[in-house]
Amino acid sequence: MIPSLRRLPLVLALATMGTAFLHAYVSCQVTTLLHPLLHPLVAGTGVLLLLAAALFLLLPDTERPRWKSGRDLTLAFVLLFALAAAPGSFSSLALANRTVADPSALLKGKGAAEEDAATYAWKPDGAGVIPLEVTDLFMAIGLPKSMAALDGKKVRVIGQYDPSAQAQAEGSNRFHLVRFLMFCCAADAQPVALAVEGTPPADLPGMGWAQAVGTVHFEAMAKAKAKTGTGTQSPAADQQEPVLTLESVKAIPEPKDKFLY
């Protein structure tokens, strides 16, 4: 017996959405979209939607208005299209639109270390370089012992290359390495930009991924902004910012975790 087509739009919509959710979870696309805490919800939703689709397939036909079938299929298509069209990271426009005046204040809300300690274990690797995230350097702001423990140390960080600082301030030899910090989902991700003093490779594209090695020092944010030409809000006079004096930089492939959480 050929099943009636009447229920198929609903079944198809539920199955499409369920598959889209499961695909986002299995393919790890969810890591660029949501905080890890929410990932199990995505998998669970995928399973529930597929189960619902199977149940509706087994049930007898119901009179369902055509506009509802159209709405359901349209919504499933929109979800599918949005997931297919979503890139792995933001462009320089999002960076320009979302740049915050004080990343260290942002990180305090993120639960940055409250305790100041010189023994904040920054352990160098075999080459004598401390591997860090950009956010680690900003988390030390306002914690004198942590800043002292990092000041003058050779560190290695990765981030997306942002040449806008150079473009805006002619003669400046600074650029930014940027990481987007996710709170709940990509929609609320905020950029954390580390000022790097030095000349980047000429072939490095804007917002391309790069790894930089250099020496950390801290300087007044107003001074740093004047050098890079960025920031429209006046930082407090005593507000400091980490700056990396570049020793080497190279382009790298996109990392697995494009966002920091």
Binding site: M17, F21, A24, V30, T32, L33, L34, L38, L41, V42, G44, T45, V78, L79, A82, L83, A85, A86, P87, S89, F90, C184, C185, A186, A187
Partner: peptide
């Protein structure tokens, strides 16, 4: 990217 994130977060 923002739209897909909000959908994936809100629909569950």
């Amino acid at each position: 990217l923002s739209f897909a994130a909000l959908l994936l977060e809100g629909i569950p």
